[in-house]
Design a protein around this nucleic acid. Structure first.
Lengths: 251, 251
DNA sequence: CCATCGTGTGCGATATACGAACAAAAGTCA
DNA sequence: TGACTTTTGTTCGTATATCGCACACGATGG
């Protein structure tokens, strides 16, 4: 790609959108400039553009994103067959298990939820399609990493910020690589409160007819109700059934 | 706003993202140029930019969005308090009712789902946060339109493409305005298979402490299980409870 | 009253869009 | 099949748009 085949104004604008996050629902021009590292004048132009197009509101001081911004992500969710195909199966799975069921794919060091059927909420985090979690400490992340060639998985772990979210979180890259081998061998991953105390989950890969891993499915449960050790006997069969049902339908 | 306070390269790029939709998961440069009405050279630069940033994949012929694009919508969903606050209440509501429960806001002539707790799937449409439906024929749309000053509601109806999705769809603006008055008076809206045959729903407004309508809540049910006439007696109380519980929590 | 912070603006240097031209595929039809 | 048309992707030159910097101004607070 040539230098001139890149629209930097567009790229800068996308960075500005992403500056709005968890902790930042309202941004002033200076805030957004600080977060993105862009010049204030540039950020101002981007924000005014967003506001002009209806993607943001502006009260003269602060900018907030409007629901219209969801059109952008929705373009993916409705255009990509996977979420649509998977959703009804997750609904069934969730109902049979009495727990939340989700599907996600890998994006860099993170997993991205592309579909979810939630039962009563047990986590402090609100997960919706589009939500992201670090791959190294999520059951679906383990499954997706295990599907990669070892050097790639290792590279992703190297790029990850391996934080101990709880005392149970595995953060040693070597230990994680060993865990990935086990996951690869047994065909599923179990996480016991490594992301958040009180939460455990079990995940399996979702493969297409050519045996390529294209996503992961999981069931999450409160540790208080279901011990991690019981996850496999309770839910593995259900997950495997869903995995098998979806296999001929994807890609 | 001055002319130069608008970054047209950014605006064009956003149009390109939105070109990917339901029917268009994969776009060639020429496809995207046709849909957006932009020059092929311009579209090409935007698409290559998206690809360079990891928001799109490019196989040399077709572009597809990657899950990374969800970061953009997620910036809204996680930054805006509403979806996070509402979700657990929707989960409860959905569980008690045994039907899907959703929350949405108005964006132009459409409602946008910002949170949803789904039970078994009954509609052909897959609804997730970010999904959009025409306001005029959705129960939450009726409630949100009814909350507007009459001239504004009328203006939105005028801008809407009033399609008869089913034989039951109301498409006459005057009839719709009358319906909005009824909705305003009774405090809820019922839709009987106006969007899709076999689907009916009931919605109430979600107000904040200052009585401003900031969203709508609904319960959707298959017409085969629940006649439209029974919706109110079955679910109105539940919806009102949720409405009351949320009222002090929002905004 | 000055220091600090945030916002808006003018300007020269640089990046980008447009239209057109060209090259390469992909159809089309005898 | 082969010649012809149509469509698509890419490149180029130039007019225009945009960036980042520097500065001005107002608000806020010690």
């Amino acid at each position: 790609m040539r230098e001139t085949d890149f629209v930097s104004g567009f790229a800068r604008g996308l960075r500005v959108i992403e500056a709005f996050g968890e902790a930042q629902p309202r941004l002033s021009i200076a805030d957004a400039a600080k977060i993105t590292g862009l010049d204030r004048a540039t950020v101002r132009r981007s924000l005014l553009t967003l506001s002009e197009l209806g993607y943001a509101d502006y009260d003269g001081k602060f900018f907030t994103l409007t629901p219209r911004i969801l059109r952008l992500g929705h373009a993916y969710l409705s255009a990509t067959p996977l979420p649509t195909i998977v959703q009804p199966y997750l609904d069934q799975l969730s109902e049979k298990a009495g727990q939340s069921a989700s599907a996600s794919v890998l994006d860099g060091t993170e997993i991205v939820y592309v579909a979810r059927a939630s039962q009563r909420r047990v986590m402090s985090i609100n997960l919706t399609p589009g939500s992201r979690l670090p791959a190294y400490c999520a059951s679906m992340g383990r499954v997706l990493l295990a599907a990669l060639p070892e050097p790639e998985a290792r590279a992703i772990l190297a790029r990850s910020e391996l934080r101990a979210n709880t005392p149970k979180t595995k953060t040693d890259p070597e230990e994680l690589m060993t865990e990935l081998s086990r996951v690869r061998a047994q065909g599923y991953a179990i996480i016991d409160q490594e992301l958040e105390l009180g939460l455990c989950s079990i995940a399996v890969p979702l493969m297409n007819a050519r045996n390529q891993v294209i996503a992961a499915l999981n069931i999450g449960a409160p540790a208080a109700h279901v011990a991690a050790a019981e996850l496999a006997e309770r839910y593995l069969l259900l997950l495997k059934e869903t995995q098998a049902a979806l296999r001929p339908l994807v890609q």
